[in-house]
Simulated scan of single mutants.
Amino acid sequence: MFMLSLTYVKPNEEADKHMEAHMAWVRQGYAKGWFLASGRKVPRTGGLILAIGNRAEIEAYVAADPFVFEGVAEYEITEVAVTTVAAGLDILKT
């Protein structure tokens, strides 16, 4: 599993200008079966996506995020070898 932590490098107002394109990209990640959960950080300094899949494909997909392309946010990708989960969350195990 991967934790995709994005941090805004520009003001929220700049992120808002590209939010629609970013959210279309997020929806496509879910459609591909890669994204499991996502949301904003609190306070709003970026966001977090839980993802599964091939690391190279995830990295390439992250590079195509409009937030990255427009220089609004940077990502840190952390791979986690999940070994224990709550009932019903076996998809998180790697």
Rank of each mutant, 00 (worst) to 15 (best):
L48N: 12
T94K: 14
W34H: 15
D65V: 10
N54F: 07
G33E: 01
M19R: 15
G33A: 00
T78Y: 10
A64W: 04
I91A: 14
M19S: 11
Y30N: 00
D65C: 04
T94N: 15
K17E: 06
W34I: 12
K41Y: 05
M1E: 10
T83R: 07
I49C: 04
P11D: 05
E59C: 09
S38D: 08
F69I: 09
T94C: 09
A15D: 00
G88W: 01
P66N: 07
I49H: 02
A87E: 15
D16W: 04
I77M: 02
S38Y: 05
L92S: 01
V85P: 10
I49E: 02
L4K: 00
Y61I: 07
F35P: 00
T45A: 14
P11H: 06
G71V: 00
P43C: 10
A21P: 01
A51Q: 04
A24R: 15
S5T: 10
V68L: 03
H22F: 03
K32A: 13
T84I: 09
A60R: 15
A73Y: 01
T45F: 06
F2M: 07
A51F: 08
A15K: 14
W25I: 01
F2G: 08
A56Q: 13
F67E: 02
L89H: 14
M3R: 12
F2P: 02
E14F: 05
A87C: 09
H22M: 07
W25S: 02
